[in-house]
Design a binder for these strands. Structure first.
Length: 725
DNA sequence: TCTATCAATATTTTT
DNA sequence: TATTGATAGA
C-alpha cells in the first residue's frame, strides 16, 4: 500500500530504461542472472522485459513471474495490466506456494487422492492444534505432560520445516530422530550426537512423523507440503515436468536470494528444458536464511544453467549519502558477490542518529520528528518507521496514538489470521471439504454447550465410524447429544443452506455467498458478535467481516471456496488506505518497499543486530559439520543484511533511533549500547535530545549523557537551524 | 465431568 | 493481544 503513489506513477507511463536495464529487458532466450542492488529498478526492468516478450508474440500465458509474496505479485500484476492491458492480465504472476497448490489440485491423482476428496491448507493454528493433540497422546504413554513438550515441539517443528525445505522428510521415527538431530546440530554449530537423544526428542520425532501420516490420510497440506510435494512429483514424473515447461516458456524469479532449495528445484525442473529462466536477486538483501532461504541458489543457478551475469548497480531510489552509508555498512560482510552500488542523484542529508534515555523517550522523540516533518509539509504517507521485532510496536503505538498521528501497523497479524475471518474460512472449508475436522474444531467456541472435549469426542466418532458429517449432524446428533446436538445441527445446517447449497462459481456468486454466510454468522445461532464483550473489539470484528465481503467483491474470484481456501497463503493487510498515515513495519515486511523518509526504531546492539556483540564474522564453533550449507556468513551477516535493507528503503532522509534502556512488557528491562552498525555506516551523532523522561533502570556511562532539553528547546533549535540554512 | 470465565503470561523475523 | 491455566459453576 505504501508504494501506491509511485506504483501508480510508474504504471501510468512506461519508464525510460537505462542502458543496463534495457539490455536486461531485451534479453529473450536462455538463462540470465541479474544481480540487482537496492533501488535499482529491478521490478520496472522485469515488467519491461515482459513487455518485450509480449511484443515479440510470446503468448502471455506462457510467461511466469514468481515473487516472494502475494503482495509483490499483485503489485507486478497491476503494473503489467496498466501497461499492457489484457495481455498483462494473462501473464502468470504468483508465489511458489500458490503455484504449488494449484499444481497439486490439478494433479490430484499423483498425490494419492481420489478426485472427490478435497484438500485443505492447514494454517498455523490448525498445525499447532494437530501437533499438540498427537503429542499429548504420546506424552501420556511416556508419563510426560504436554507442557514439558511445548518447547521441544516448537523447536522440532521449525527444524522439520527447514528439513522439508531442504527436500528431506523422514518417513519413520528413527530416521526422523537422526535427521532432526543433524539439523539441530547444524543450527547450533555443534556436532550431531544421536546418543544424546532425550525422551522428549523421541516423542517430538514421533509426533512429526505421525503428523505427516495424518495429514496425508485426511487430505491436509501445510506450507511446506505446497513446495515439497509438487517438486517431488516433478522429479518423479519427468513427463509432467516437460508439460509444465511447455506451459511456462519464460520464467522470471524475483527476490531469488530468498528462495529455498525446494523452490530452486521446482524452478529447475520446470525450466531446465528450455532454460529461459531469469533469476533476479541481491545477496546483500537476503534476510530469510533463518527460514531456509539459500543465497547459494544464485551461484548454483549460474553453474546449473551456465547463466551469464548482468548487474544493476545504480540506485535510483536514495540520495547519495544514504547509499554511501548503506554500502559502507554492507561492505563489512565477508561473503558477498562483488558489486559496487552507486547513486548518481544529489547527495542529500546524511543519516542521523538520535539517542534517548528510554524506549518511551525514543518513541516521543520519533513522534516529535514526525510532527516536524508534517510541519514542513511532508505527507504522513511518505514516512515509515522500521524496527527489528514486532514488540517495538508496544512502545511506538501508544506514543503515536497519544499524539493523534494516524498510523498503520504492517505485520503482526495479517487480516486472514483474525479470529472472525478464520471462522468464515472454517465454514467455507467445511462446505468444501466435509471431512475437515480441523475447521470444525475452529468453530467449537461458537457453539453453545459444546466444549473442547465434546467436540473432540464427536469428531473421534465421525472419524472412527467413517460417518458423513451432514448426515450425522442433521439427524443423529440432535437425538444423541440433546441440547448440544441441536446446536451442532443448527450450525451445520446454516453452513449447508448458506454456503454449500448456494454454490455458484461466478464472481457474483462468490460475493453473494460471502454476504449471506457472514450475515448468518453474525446474526444466526453462532452469534459471533454477541460473544465479544469488548465494545471496541466487537465493532472491529464486525468491520473486518464487512471488509472481507468488500474484498471478495473487489477480487472477483470465480469461486468463493477456492478463494477462502487459499486465504492462508495471502498476506493481505486491511489498512486505512484513504487516511494519510505513518507506516510502522518490521524490516522483514518492508522488503521491496520504499519511502521518502525512513526512521529506524531500536538502532541498538541487541535489537539490530538482535544478538549483541556477535559481530565478528561467523559464529565461532561452526565447522566440520557437513557443509551443504556453505553459503552464508551465518547469523551476524544476515543481521547486517537486515540493517542494510532497512537503510536502503529510504529515498531522502534516514534517521536512526537508539535508547539506552528498553523495557518491553513480559521481559526484564535491558540496557543496550548503540548499534555497532552506526560506526560501520559512518554516522554522525545528533546529540539534541528532547525527551529524557522515565527512569533509567541503571545509569549508563555512554558518551556523556546529553542534558535533558524541553520540547520547546528542540523546536527553537530546529527553527534556528532552518534559518541558518 | 465438562463448560465458561477470568487472570496471567509471553513475544525474532513469516510464505 | 491471543492463548493458556486455574477456578468456579452447571
Amino acid at each position: 500500500m505504501t508504494t501506491e503513489n509511485d506504483t501508480a506513477m510508474d504504471a501510468a507511463k512506461p519508464i525510460s530504461l537505462t542502458d543496463q536495464q534495457a539490455k536486461i529487458a531485451n534479453h529473450k532466450d536462455g538463462p540470465l542472472i541479474v544481480l540487482a542492488g537496492a533501488g535499482s529498478g529491478k521490478t520496472a526492468t522485469l515488467v519491461a522485459r515482459t513487455g518485450r516478450l509480449l511484443e515479440q508474440g510470446v503468448p502471455p500465458r506462457t510467461i511466469l513471474i514468481t515473487t516472494f509474496s502475494r503482495k509483490a505479485a499483485t503489485e507486478i500484476k497491476n503494473r503489467l495490466v496498466a501497461q499492457y492491458g489484457w495481455e498483462g492480465e494473462d501473464v502468470r504472476v504468483d508465489t511458489f506456494h500458490g503455484m504449488g497448490f494449484r499444481f497439486m489440485q490439478e494433479y490430484k491423482e499423483h498425490f494419492g487422492l481420489t478426485p472427490d476428496r478435497q484438500w485443505a491448507i492447514l494454517n498455523e493454528n490448525d498445525q499447532r492444534r494437530t501437533l499438540n493433540e498427537i503429542a499429548k497422546e504420546l506424552a501420556e504413554d511416556a508419563d510426560l505432560e504436554l507442557k514439558d513438550l511445548r518447547k521441544p515441539l516448537k523447536e522440532g517443528l521449525s527444524l522439520w520445516s527447514l528439513m522439508k525445505q531442504d527436500c528431506k522428510c523422514p518417513a519413520n521415527m528413527s530416521d526422523a530422530i537422526i535427521e532432526l538431530d543433524k539439523k539441530r546440530a547444524m543450527q547450533k554449530g555443534v556436532s550431531p550426537n544421536a546418543e544424546a537423544v532425550t525422551v522428549q526428542d523421541r516423542i517430538v520425532a514421533q509426533t512429526l512423523v505421525k503428523y505427516e501420516e495424518q495429514k496425508r490420510k485426511e487430505g491436509y497440506l501445510d506450507f511446506d507440503d505446497l513446495l515439497l510435494q509438487p517438486t517431488r512429483c516433478l522429479v518423479k514424473y519427468p513427463n509432467i515436468a516437460v508439460g509444465m515447461s511447455m506451459q511456462h516458456e519464460y520464467i522470471m524469479v524475483d527476490e531469488s536470494q530468498d528462495t529455498n532449495l525446494v523452490q530452486y528445484l521446482m524452478m529447475q525442473q520446470i525450466g531446465q528444458h528450455h532454460k529461459n529462466v531469469v533469476m533476479v536477486g541481491d545477496d546483500d538483501q537476503s534476510i530469510y536464511r533463518w527460514r531456509g532461504a539459500k543465497v547459494a541458489n544464485l551461484r548454483r543457478f549460474i553453474k546449473d544453467f551456465d547463466a551469464p551475469i548482468a548487474r544493476l548497480e545504480e540506485n535510483f531510489r536514495s540520495h547519495a549519502n544514504i547509499v554511501n552509508s548503506a554500502s559502507s555498512l554492507i561492505q563489512h560482510n565477508q561473503k558477498r558477490l562483488p558489486k559496487k552500488p552507486f547513486s548518481a542523484t544529489q547527495s542529500g542529508e546524511a543519516p542521523e542518529l538520535t539517542i534517548s534515555d528510554t524506549d518511551r523517550a525514543m518513541a516521543l522523540n520519533m513522534v516529535d520528528q514526525v510532527v516536524e516533518m508534517q510541519a514542513k509539509g511532508i505527507p504522513l504517507n511518505d514516512i515509515a518507521i522500521l524496527y527489528r521485532t514486532n514488540r517495538m510496536t508496544t512502545v511506538l503505538e501508544p506514543a503515536f496514538k497519544q499524539a493523534g498521528i494516524p498510523y498503520t501497523v504492517v505485520g503482526g497479524m495479517s487480516f486472514y489470521e483474525r479470529q472472525e475471518i478464520q471462522a468464515v474460512q472454517a465454514c467455507a472449508r467445511i462446505a468444501y471439504k466435509h471431512d475437515d475436522w480441523n475447521a470444525l474444531k475452529f468453530l467449537q467456541p461458537y457453539i453453545d454447550g459444546v466444549g473442547k472435549k465434546g467436540m473432540a469426542d464427536t469428531i473421534e466418532r465421525l472419524k472412527k465410524d467413517n460417518l458423513n458429517l451432514l448426515q450425522f449432524m442433521l439427524h443423529e446428533a440432535p437425538q444423541q447429544y440433546g441440547k448440544a446436538g441441536i446446536r451442532l445441527r443448527e450450525m451445520v445446517e446454516g453452513i449447508y443452506t448458506n454456503a454449500y447449497a448456494k454454490h455458484d462459481p461466478t464472481p457474483e456468486g462468490a460475493y453473494n455467498m460471502a454476504k449471506h454466510l457472514i450475515q448468518w454468522m453474525k446474526d444466526g445461532p453462532m452469534k459471533m458478535l454477541d460473544r465479544e464483550k469488548d465494545d471496541v473489539m466487537r465493532v472491529r470484528r464486525s468491520q473486518n467481516l464487512d471488509q472481507l465481503i468488500h474484498e471478495i467483491g473487489q477480487a472477483r474470484p470465480n469461486d468463493f471456496f477456492q478463494y477462502m481456501l487459499e486465504a492462508p497463503l495471502s498476506d493481505y493487510m486491511a489498512s486505512k488506505e484513504n487516511v494519510e498515515h505513518v507506516t510502522l513495519s518490521t524490516v522483514h515486511r518492508s522488503k521491496g518497499l520504499e519511502w521518502p523518509h525512513v526512521m529506524i526504531a531500536g538502532f541498538s546492539d541487541g535489537l539490530m543486530p538482535l544478538e549483541p556483540g556477535r559481530l565478528q564474522g561467523r559464529t565461532p564453533q561452526k565447522q566440520q559439520v557437513e557443509s551443504d550449507d556453505d553459503d552464508d556468513g551465518g547469523r551476524p551477516e544476515e543481521e547486517r543484511c537486515l540493517a542494510y535493507v532497512a537503510a536502503t528503503r529510504a529515498m531522502e532522509t534516514l534517521s536512526l533511533h537508539h535508547a539506552d534502556m528498553y523495557h518491553f512488557p513480559g521481559s526484564e528491562p535491558v540496557c543496550l549500547d548503540v548499534s555497532p552498525y552506526a560506526d560501520e555506516m559512518n554516522i554522525v551523532f545528533a546529540p539534541e535530545v528532547a525527551h529524557n523522561v522515565g527512569k533509567p533502570g541503571s545509569t549508563t556511562l555512554e558518551p556523556e549523557p546529553p542534558s535533558p532539553q524541553t520540547h520547546q528547546d528542540l523546536e527553537d533549535e530546529e527553527i534556528a537551524r532552518l534559518i541558518m540554512g
